[in-house]
Design a protein around this nucleic acid. Structure first.
Lengths: 332, 332
DNA sequence: CTGAAAGCGCTTACAG
DNA sequence: CTGAAAGCGCTTACAG
């Protein structure tokens, strides 16, 4: 068992009150002599106040929970990195929960986290709207979820304008047969991205054809399967993928079907993962600042925790279209 | 504030002892009637014993710490997934720490975790040997670190035989000018992989040439830079990369230098990340079971926690050479 | 079958 | 300048 404040007190010949006060820089000045004596004992025996006992009285767990749909997802792992970076500076630690896209698990995790008296919860989930009532009671921030029922603390990403720009770019380069890989399981941003695709086509007078769409999980494998299905059935010159991971899957599908990117097929993604610029050819995509999103979410959550009455601002993150080698001009 | 056991007791007109006993299925049978009454109140007010108070007496934090060098690393995120999958079943939660490859940070994290009375620590680090003395006191398992000073609980991966096989495969296919991308910052497995390369070359009578080596961080970017440096200075027909991420970087370097994979350059990686089979061409690599490694590490740690006197076995994970499209036979 | 009391390791009024 | 005592919310001997 670890050494206790009582023992430190005994060793240095003072009361526990004194030890506690000195350690917390509280109360009146103690004689330099006793301070030294206490500090020496503390140091010597490597005394650290017990976390649980301390929390019994203070109720500051200095812990937040973070729930993500998939830790191995390249976008989310970058978000986690941002969250961790901020909270680490603030002496908070993160209980990481991997929900595997399951709303039930998310619900369980929220419950568990609340039972542990976490100071707050960061939730990244397509189901977050349904879960907001469960979240009540603890401060929380929703990540990767534009709209929610609150007026503040919303982190928005310009999904729409990013994709719109990408589609416009394709059209400007002579493409009209443009497909899209979507995901209809409830990710708000996927809906936004589709809307942008739809609207941009429309604005350019290109008729919308639902057979140019394929749906699948937002993973490499999901993109591969969706792309394969789509490319086998329709002839298109460009494909807008729901995210970079799906684009990576598309590369493979194209390869297997003997289509060369970008010559036979232009491809654009969304996210601008680190890996995307290393693909062959480098992926044209839309950048969103994953690390920053996590970092900011963490920052907002801490504000909610520490200053519950202060209004948490909303924040909109820019997206940037990045042209690389996977798209080509097909006008003669 | 949450509702307390005292209030539940008051509401159901019994003592806190009774409530506690009933909730924990302890003690003598209580009359069916009082059980019901208590349970009803518990349910109605959604009472949950306070985590900290409970721990004050039980000291079972049901929490483990996990320290990884980089959460965005594709190998580690897979390991995390495995760890989480196991502990979630066991009602444990994970405090995730991202050390960013810094030994100082690792040390801090260990300290912090211990102060929080975690039940155990999972450490993935090239510095783990140096840190073992800090770890003393809590149960721990080292991940991704073949040898340590302990006789038990070692997780070994057959790094050596995997790479040996890969190199032999290259040689059998006519390659003799084989380069390697290494990392000398202390990762045990990187050393193992290099050793295998070295030995296999030697066993096949190919003279070892240190200029066929390039060193760099075990990331995509690191692989890109190292490969570029190497490929610009030496003509080689095959390159063995320290891991798949470095191989991905190599694809880009080759692309920029106008080298076609596999025609101008055969490439092999290590890890068999999900993404690797989707590369263009699909990467020839050596599979190691990242998820399993995490899962098993978690399992072993839990055993150490729950049965401190029982010997934790050692376990060796197999690696499998997987031939895909990035290597070619260059014999006529 | 049930409850009063002690104790887990801290912190914090309060008193001197 | 310092300490005795109460209290945080539980659980667990112990007693009846």
């Amino acid at each position: 068992m670890k050494i206790t404040i009582k023992e430190i007190a005994a060793i240095s010949g003072v009361s526990t009150t004194t030890v506690s006060q000195i350690l917390n820089n509280k109360g009146q000045r103690f004689s330099e002599e006793t301070r030294k004596r206490v500090l020496k004992a503390v140091c010597e025996y490597d005394y650290n106040p017990d976390y649980f006992a301390k929390n019994m009285v203070h109720r500051e767990s200095k812990t937040v929970g973070m729930i993500v749909p998939d830790v191995t997802d390249l976008f989310f792992s970058k978000v986690i990195e941002g969250v961790e970076a901020y909270f680490n500076k603030k002496d908070y630690m993160i209980l990481l929960c991997n929900s595997r896209h399951s709303a039930d698990k998310e619900k369980d995790y929220i419950k568990q986290l609340q039972n542990r008296s976490v100071a707050g919860i960061l939730l990244a989930s397509p189901n977050s709207l349904k879960l907001e009532s469960d979240l009540k009671g603890s401060p929380y921030i929703l990540i990767d979820r534009g709209l929610n029922t609150r007026a503040e603390g919303n982190l928005l990403v310009k999904e729409y304008s990013g994709v719109y720009q990408a589609i416009q770019h394709l059209i400007d380069n002579g493409h009209t047969q443009i497909g899209m890989l979507t995901n209809e399981s409830g990710y708000y941003e996927m809906t936004e991205r589709f809307e942008a695709y739809y609207q941009c086509m429309k604005d350019n007078g290109i008729k919308y054809d639902p057979t140019f769409l394929a749906d699948g999980p937002v993973t490499i494998e999901g993109g591969y399967l969706a792309a394969k299905e789509l490319l086998e059935k329709r002839i298109i010159t460009a494909l807008c993928c729901g995210n970079d991971q799906m684009a990576i899957g598309t590369y493979r599908a194209a390869y297997e079907l003997g289509l060369s990117i970008p010559n036979d097929l232009s491809v654009v993604g969304f996210d601008d993962l680190e890996i995307s610029s290393f693909l062959n050819p480098p992926l044209t995509t839309v950048n969103q600042p994953a690390f920053d999103i996590g970092y900011t979410a963490a920052q907002y959550l801490l504000q909610e925790i520490e200053q519950p009455n202060k209004v948490v601002p909303n924040k909109t993150f820019e997206t940037t279209f990045i042209e690389r080698g996977s798209t080509i001009n097909i006008d003669k």
